[in-house]
């Protein structure tokens, strides 16, 4: 099946269960939004799927087009086709954006094959233009001294250059002003199509004004408690997360 298919995933941090039998399927070609209050495990999901060593997967599967990602190294997961846009991207002093993305693309090429520099720079410039990133940034060190908005645009630039099969955007909208939000959304929308599945993790509904999700999921205490169409996000915006909490309490009472 061509999907990112997460089945009964259990994840601990320092022995404490955070994800509890979490299941979710994002078919290729669709955009899903994962919403929920802080501390319900949204970012844990992203980091655990990406293979971060501090996130211990104690059970379940995460299938990328049928192949299990659990137990792979973070770089193997990335090369298998999963991209994660970080909520807090790291700085890499002395390594320029152009060289970093180039190294990342090179890492995906078969042994002995080299990236074509001219074509690479043409593509890079085109995508930077689309994201309104000044060309000066090609030689700037990755994320060093960037504003919040610049970091997020740089994440989207990397996503556009690496063309992953699946992307998880972890709170990409946090810290963005409205202009940056629009630009980032345009980038995501431009990549939307049959070749990519996207999971947008967000706390707020406002990003979904610019990126229309096919499905919306609400997360609570380590699992999905509600799924629906884009109208679910609006409902959440209106009623707040307490509404989900109360409904949940009523259901389990």
């Amino acid at each position: 099946m061509n999907a990112l298919n997460i089945q009964d995933l259990n994840v601990n941090i320092e022995g404490k269960p955070i994800l509890k039998n979490f299941s979710l399927t994002v078919p290729k070609g669709e955009v899903h939004a994962l919403m929920g209050p802080n501390g319900t495990g949204k970012s844990t999901l992203a980091k655990a799927l990406a293979g971060h060593e501090a996130y211990e997967i104690t059970g379940g599967k995460a299938l990328l087009d049928g192949a299990d990602l659990v137990g792979l190294e973070p770089d193997e997961i990335a090369r298998a086709g999963l991209f994660m846009a970080f909520q807090y991207p790291s700085e890499i002093p002395g390594v320029s954006i152009a060289n970093f993305i180039r190294a990342a693309i090179q890492a995906r090429l078969p042994e002995g094959e080299n990236l074509q520099a001219t074509a690479y720079y043409k593509e890079l410039y085109d995508k930077m233009d689309a994201l309104a990133i000044d060309r000066k940034f090609t030689s700037r060190a990755v994320n060093e001294g960037f504003s919040g908005g610049e970091k997020k645009r740089c994440e989207i630039l990397q996503m556009m250059m690496l063309k992953p099969a699946y992307a998880i955007l972890d709170e990409t909208d946090s810290g963005l002003d409205i202009d940056a939000l629009k630009i980032v959304s345009q980038g995501v929308n431009a990549m939307r199509g049959p070749d990519m599945g996207t999971l947008i993790i967000t706390h707020y509904q406002r990003l979904l004004n610019y990126i229309q999700p096919d499905k919306v999921h609400v997360m609570w205490d380590g699992r999905i408690v509600r799924s629906g169409g884009k109208e679910l996000a609006l409902e959440l915006e209106e009623k707040g997360y307490d509404w989900v909490k109360e409904e949940l309490a009523a259901a389990t009472a």
Partner: peptide
């Protein structure tokens, strides 16, 4: 930092490549 290496690995670089690129960046 481990976070920096994780970030770079998430882009597809092996741990050794990530470390080597970081070091090269440091002395660039």
């Amino acid at each position: 930092s481990a976070e920096q290496i994780f970030y770079m690995q998430q882009r597809g670089l092996s741990e050794a490549e990530a470390m080597s690129l970081s070091v090269n960046g440091f002395i660039n």
